[in-house]
Structures are given as structure tokens and as C-alpha cells.
Design a protein around this nucleic acid. Structure first.
Lengths: 213, 213
DNA sequence: GAGGCCGCTGACCGTCCGTTCAGTCGGGGT
DNA sequence: ACCCCGACTGAACGGACGGTCAGCGGCCTC
């Protein structure tokens, strides 16, 4: 509800700067994204945000040009992470299903590492120019995944009895659902989550006689 | 963007009523929920909503007490559907995994039949009293699912190498992800979707030598 | 064809919104 | 000790917000 003093002071781990100590862009962004995720972007007023930061409303504008830029910074970070994961998977030599498996694992890692940023990204509706741009990049990522799934099905590595378009969407629906409940530090760790997602996605949750991996 | 005339006039299929023709609660609610899902609940103003309805802002208050009540009506419809599915599954005689499979199928049917209402429900953040109540009912539903998964794992019917709490969340993350892309009338039908979800969830998306069902 | 009901209008209210601006405060560098 | 830079304050702005109110207009019923 109220500001936490040790959240402020973004200097940690940075070279000493001149002037009054306080937030820098990065530490302010982290708090803002957290609040956006709790109350929704549109549901969060700059006044509420300033109270959570423990500074005045106008102080926020010293760090960013407005509410819009906070959203932009957040969704860009999430998208950059996801595309890095995609590039990683794309650079692989293996079969489509191997690259797909790698992409799932890398995506989970990004969701886990940047959970608040990805959460915000996945809730964007396209109301503003910033949101429209974010949605366009998301669609690009989705096309990339769909391509891999189609290829894997053509290779005969994925069950042929489901439309690959549906398979792709279910697969990344499963991965993306992480943001609804995963909280860093609480419960399972990142590796355990990534393993669980990979197992459930590729082999299902039913017990089976003998399954590798 | 603008109102569609044949969306108005909620009389279709109803007994003739007195007075001027126009919206009734039901037809107004359907449009409102659609707009809420496009722009977000907080991101939709009553003015914007009135434009989409093709009536004046004040006319909305003739049908409902306010924006809050529209949300209440919508999330209640979604929750009633989900709990009906749960009751159905709970009344079954079979093993836990059979009841779970039934619940998944019934839940998908609800998501498909009431997609806009469920979508709105799943995006609620808890900002108002209405939203808090909705979240509480959602948590109750989640506990129900978790219970079934735990029981199924105790029966030995679900893979024991994943924490049942995680399994339950992944399972319903998979189911709930439908609302992100399923659109009635376009592409796959309800039965095809339900089948795909059940197959992927229980048996995974990988091709396997011989798998029943 | 008169009555009445239902859906609707347009002007208006107080409040909250995102944003701006002219400064003040505080601490490290020199 | 002084300077200056970066973080911050408080009051104010215009506009958008959810909601109210007194009354109008079309259609079914009798």
C-alpha cells in the first residue's frame, strides 16, 4: 500500500552519482510495473502510483515522459527477451521439434526472469499507439512459433490428429499461463517450472508405463 | 466502431413487450461485455460504450445501475457456468481422473459457449468490491480443481514427477488460454477444441506409437 | 384513440485524470 | 566552502470520467 523505503534509491550496484539520492528510471520502472500488474494499467492512476513510490506525482515526470513511456519500456523489455529466446532457438541445427522444445524452455526462462514485464505485455489490449505496436510484435512472435509447430508436424514429430494452428496456440497458452500464478522466490524454482511445462506440453499429464525425459 | 442496428432490439425470441423497442438488459450486456473485452473494463468509458450501443450515455442507466453492475452480471454468468460444470463433474461416480477429464471437457464447453463473459472474468484484478468477490469465487473453483488433481495423483493416474499444485495450474492455464484466441463461428468448432485440449492436456502434443482416445 | 409504459435524450454535476511548471532540497565534487 | 546537479515538491490546468435528472417520444394494449 505505502512506499517501501528500501525499494527507493536505485543506486545499488551503480557508480556514485551526483545530487540527491532517490529513484532512477530502472528502480522506478520496476515498482510501476508491479503496480500496473496489481491494478491493471488503465486502473492505475499516476496519483496511486506516486503513493506507492513514496514520491509526489510530479516527480515521476522527472524520470519518464508520462504513463505511456512506462508501458513502452515494460513491454519492450518483455518482447526483447522473447525474441532473444526465439533467435536462440532459430540458430539451432536440430529438427523442428528440437528447436520448438528449446524455444519452450527459453520462453519459460524469460517468463520466469521477467515475469512482471511479460505479464504486462500479455494484458495489453491495443488502446494506444504503444499498445498497438506491442501487439504487432507479439503477433510476429506467434507466427514464428506456429511455423515451428507446422514444420514439426510435417516431420511427423507432433501428433497429426490436431490442427497445427490449434496445437501452437495451446502450447503457448500453456507457457503463457505461467504469468498468472508464478511468483519468483515462492514455491517452485525456475528450473522445476520449465521442466514441468516441457513434460506436460510434450508428454501430457497422464501417467504412462515408460516415458523418457 | 459505431453501433450496429441489428445488434439492438433485444426482443428476438422473446414475447412481445410494451413500449418503445430497443435494448433490454440482456442485449445491452452482450454488447457491453464485447467492448469491455476489446478495450479492457477500466479502459472503456461509459461514453465510448454508449457510442458503441448507439444510444446516449444516460440511456445505459435505464437498464443497469452503473458500470459496476455490468461487470457483476458478466462475471456472475461466467462463474455460474463454471460451477455448474464442476457440480456436474463432482456428481460423477468414476475415479478422480475421470471426473477431472469430465471437468476439463465441461469447462471448455463453458469457455466456448460463454467466451466473452469468461474472458472478462479472467481479466479481473480485484480493484473493486465486485471484482474482489469474483476473485474469491474463482479461487474456490481453483481449489476444487486442485483437489481433483491431487486425488488423481494419489490414485496413480497422473504422473508423479510433477508437483500436483503445478499440474493443476498448468492444466487450467491450458484450458483458460482458449479465451485468448477462440472465436465462435470462426475456424474450429467447440467439439474440435474440446477434443484438442483434452488430448494435449492428458497425452501431450508429441506423436506416440499407439495411444487410445 | 387514449393511456401508459418503456426506452431514450441532452444538459449538467462533482470528481479524478494525466500532465505542467516554477521553484526547493540535499549531497557529492572540487 | 562553494557550487551545481539531480531528485523532488505543491499548486494548478483542462479535459475526461461515472453518474444524475427532468422530461420527451414511440408503440402496444384496451
Amino acid at each position: 500500500m505505502t512506499a517501501v523505503s528500501n525499494v527507493r534509491n536505485g543506486r545499488d550496484g551503480k557508480a556514485n552519482r551526483r545530487g540527491r539520492p532517490g529513484y532512477d528510471r530502472e528502480s522506478l520502472l520496476r515498482v510501476a510495473v508491479k503496480v500496473f500488474n496489481e491494478r491493471g494499467y488503465d486502473g492505475t492512476s499516476m496519483d496511486e502510483l506516486s503513493k506507492r513510490l513514496g514520491i509526489s506525482k510530479s516527480a515521476i515526470y522527472h524520470h519518464v515522459s508520462g504513463k505511456d513511456e512506462l508501458l513502452q519500456l515494460a513491454v519492450d523489455r518483455a518482447l526483447d527477451g522473447l525474441f532473444a529466446a526465439a533467435d536462440e532457438a532459430g540458430a539451432l541445427d536440430g529438427s523442428a521439434i528440437d528447436r520448438l522444445e528449446h524455444l519452450v524452455r527459453a520462453s519459460v526462462a524469460v517468463l520466469v526472469a521477467e515475469q512482471p514485464f511479460v505479464t504486462l505485455l500479455l494484458r495489453v489490449r491495443g488502446n494506444t499507439a504503444v499498445e498497438k505496436r506491442a501487439l504487432a510484435r507479439r503477433r510476429e512472435f506467434d507466427r514464428l512459433v506456429s511455423g515451428l509447430v507446422e514444420q514439426a508436424e510435417a516431420d511427423g514429430d507432433i501428433r497429426p490428429d490436431i490442427d497445427p494452428a490449434i496445437t501452437a496456440r495451446l502450447l503457448f497458452g500453456l507457457v503463457n499461463s505461467l504469468i498468472e500464478w508464478y511468483r519468483p522466490g515462492a514455491g517452485a524454482g525456475a528450473d522445476e517450472i520449465a521442466d514441468a511445462v516441457r513434460k506436460v506440453a510434450f508428454d501430457g499429464l497422464r501417467r504412462r508405463p515408460a516415458t523418457g525425459g
